[in-house]
Write a protein that binds this DNA or RNA. Structure first.
Lengths: 189, 189
DNA sequence: TCTTGCGGAGAACGAGCGTTCTCCAGCAGG
DNA sequence: CCTGCTGGAGAACGCTCGTTCTCCGCAAGA
């Protein structure tokens, strides 16, 4: 098998295992077994476990952004796109295996011991904040609206995970709607 | 030394070490060294590490609730008490060693491997949600306001930790203010 | 056919760590 | 003085796991 599919199979296996059981709980042997790629090749592609974890997070960030953007295309206004973010979250929270935001979980688990993981988490959160600020600006809201949407999104992910309910997405959506309408200049509907 | 101070010294040491470095990164030997309590006595009081971690979290929850309540006493209205929650958060986020919500971090680290820790985290979040719902009801807001405040609080904790800025508390405070005013019946000022 | 090197399987190594055990000092009671 | 108990210090045990090493099959080229 060529390197490309070997790398993808490793990332697929690691992503699932890390998310389901936590990064530290999963051994490299389990990733070898689940991916079918030998340890030697695995270490040839990813020289250490935390770099594999960081690579998993960075790929997941790209997929998350693409998936969210795809869900939002076709929505007519910036305002409906903002609300669409929370509909997207609801569908995610409602999936059977939802266990919280993988980036927040990785931060809680590894921030004290792996700088490459924390850097990947930080980059994902900055990208998400920038994306939401863009939507907020498109909707004619002030910069603070972007920050508030970012807080709502992260709070909903935590609340849904710990309290075992996807309803947090609906509560956050309602809050976002009120915030959009409350801010002085909401140009578009 | 009697059991009471031994237990307190263990909890003090474990709380600091667990929060600073993560639960799994801290060995029982380090807790023994930091607390000055022998391993034998330590295991006599807490039969396993995850039960010690759960005990740390439950005590921290009690202290957090008391500290928050003390910060809110004297504030004249439910509305100002709600805003006071976010002022309280700002002061916390601005402390040098802030590393996120210890309960969220513990959840990310241990939810797959320790039921006693996840139970302690869940109880803390339910208590916090109930407290905020009480404030929201006192302020004349609908039940959804309580849920939204809960989401804002958790989102602010995550955002402040990962983005290294206490400003998230101010953004969340501004959002809370808008939500209070946006909700139909805001009786008290 | 012989050689050479790549890559797979998995054993091995070394460190960390949760938990238990051993040893011993000190002290209370007979 | 002897006995037995409590509790501290820390060695020891057993397991996990990240990482590396060894061995071997096999395919490609001369």
């Amino acid at each position: 098998m060529d390197d490309r599919t070997a790398e993808a199979r490793i990332l697929d296996a690691a992503e699932r295992l890390f998310y389901d059981y936590g990064i530290r709980s999963v051994g490299m042997d389990q990733i070898r077994d689940a991916s079918g790629v030998s340890l030697k090749r695995l270490y040839g592609l990813f020289p250490a476990k935390d770099q594999l974890a960081a690579a998993v997070l960075r790929r997941r960030d790209r997929e998350f952004q693409q998936s969210l953007a795809a869900h939002l295309t076709g929505l007519p206004s910036p305002r409906s796109q903002i609300l669409g973010v929370f509909d997207f979250l609801y569908a995610w929270f409602d999936e059977p295996g939802y266990r919280g935001c993988p980036f927040v979980n990785a931060f809680g688990e590894m921030s004290a011991s792996s700088s490459s993981v924390t850097a990947a988490v930080e980059d994902q959160k900055r990208a998400l904040a920038a994306f939401l600020s863009g939507l907020a600006a498109d909707a004619g809201g002030p910069p603070a609206l972007g920050e508030q949407l970012f807080i709502l999104v992260n709070g909903a992910m935590v609340a849904a995970a710990i309290l075992h309910t996807p309803e947090a997405a609906k509560d956050a959506r309602a809050a976002a709607l009120l915030l959009i309408e409350a801010h002085p200049a909401d140009a578009l509907t």
